[in-house]
Amino acid sequence: MKYYAVILTMLDEEKNKQYRPDHLAFLEQKANEGKLFAKGPFTDGAGGLVIYKGESLAEIEEIVSQDPYVIRGARGYKIHEWNMEVIGE
């Protein structure tokens, strides 16, 4: 299993507010499927970060393309494969 950091950049604040419940429901579904590692907004309002678990970049691109924020144009995104390192190990 690999980890992928998805930076969701703010494109439209009104759409962001409108589609937030749909986005959060989508993330809950992905968590229930075992695909979500961590999530949260940036404190400066610039967007947020979601870390997904998957087998390939293509799999994560497919998941992210289904996020209501992305579909509705509220957020743009950039995906980076992430090597999680645990401090002290």
Rank of each mutant, 00 (worst) to 15 (best):
K30L: 06
A74S: 12
E62I: 05
G47R: 02
F26R: 01
Y52P: 03
G54Y: 02
G76R: 02
E33Y: 10
M84W: 13
M1R: 12
I71G: 03
E61Y: 06
T9A: 10
R20D: 08
V6Y: 08
E33V: 12
N83P: 10
E33R: 05
K35M: 06
Y4M: 05
V6G: 02
K39P: 00
I60V: 11
Y4D: 02
I71K: 15
E59C: 04
H80M: 15
F37D: 06
G47I: 07
P68T: 03
G34T: 03
I7M: 12
W82E: 01
V6E: 09
K53Q: 15
I7F: 15
E81T: 08
K30C: 09
G48S: 09
Y3W: 07
Y77L: 06
F37H: 09
S65F: 01
K35L: 08
G40D: 06
E81G: 04
Y3H: 05
Y77F: 12
F37L: 07
E81N: 05
E62K: 02
A46L: 10
I60T: 00
L24P: 11
L27A: 00
I87V: 14
L27I: 05
M84I: 14
I87G: 15
Y52W: 07
I87W: 14
A46E: 14
W82Q: 03
G47L: 00
V50L: 12
D67N: 09
I51G: 08
H80G: 11
L36I: 11
G76D: 09
P41D: 01
R72G: 06
P68S: 03
F42Q: 08
G88K: 04
K35Q: 11
L11M: 13
E13D: 15
I71H: 09
F42V: 08
K53C: 11
E81F: 07
V86D: 13
G47H: 07
S65H: 11
I71Y: 05
S56L: 02
P68V: 08
L11W: 10
G73L: 07
W82Y: 12
E28N: 03
